Computed example of a mutant assay.
Amino acid sequence: MNKRTITIIAILLALLFVGSLIWGVTTKNKLEANYTEKSSEAEQLTLLRDNLMKSVDSLDQAFQEVSGENAQLQGELTTAQETAQAALYDMRRAQKARKNDNDVAYEMRKQIEDLMNVRSMLETSITELTEENKDLRQRNVVLRQDLSTAKTEAYESNKKVDNLSRLNESIEADLERMTLGNFKATAIQVDLLRKNGSNTANANRARRIAVSFDLTDVPSEFLGVRPIFLVLTDESSTPVISENPVRAKSIVNGAEKDIIALEGRDVNLERNQRISFTHELSDKLDEGFYRAEIYTDIGMLGSAKVQLR
Rank of each mutant, 00 (worst) to 15 (best):
W23H: 14
L21V: 14
D114Q: 08
S303V: 02
R98G: 06
T36D: 13
K184G: 01
T7K: 12
V66P: 04
V141A: 15
N70Y: 11
G288H: 03
I171P: 00
N34L: 15
I126V: 14
K3S: 15
K99M: 10
M108F: 06
A173P: 02
D258Y: 00
I22S: 15
N244C: 11
K257M: 08
Q44M: 10
R247H: 12
A248P: 02
P219A: 04
Q111K: 12
E293I: 04
L16N: 07
L73I: 01
G19W: 10
S157T: 10
T27E: 08
Y89S: 15
L21C: 15
L12M: 06
S236C: 09
Q273G: 07
M91I: 13
S39F: 12
T5N: 05
P227T: 15
I9G: 11
F63Y: 10
A10P: 01
G24L: 09
Y155V: 07
D191C: 04
A187I: 03
D162M: 10
S20R: 12
L180H: 02
Q95E: 13
L45T: 07
R247Y: 10
D286H: 08
W23R: 12
K3E: 15
E156A: 09
Y155P: 01
N100I: 09
G264E: 02
D174Q: 13
I259R: 04
L232R: 01
R274Q: 13
E107N: 14
R309L: 07
L59F: 03
R271W: 09
G254L: 10
A33Q: 13
N102T: 09
D286R: 14
E287L: 05
G19D: 05
N268T: 13
T124R: 05
S236N: 10
R207Y: 00
S237L: 12
A14C: 09
K151M: 04
I251D: 03
A173I: 12
I9E: 10
I251E: 04
L164W: 05
E263I: 00
R119C: 10
E221S: 11
N244H: 12
G264K: 00
T130W: 04
A94G: 15
K30P: 03
A71L: 03
T149G: 06
E107T: 10
I298K: 02
A185D: 03
V142N: 13
L308T: 06
T152R: 03
Q145I: 07
I171W: 07
I294H: 01
L122V: 14
T149L: 09
R137M: 09
F222S: 05
L175S: 07
L193C: 04
D90R: 14
E156V: 07
Y295R: 03
S157R: 12
T78F: 01
S212M: 00
E270G: 05
I294M: 01
E123G: 09
S40L: 15
G299Q: 02
F213C: 01
L285E: 02
R247A: 15
L47G: 08
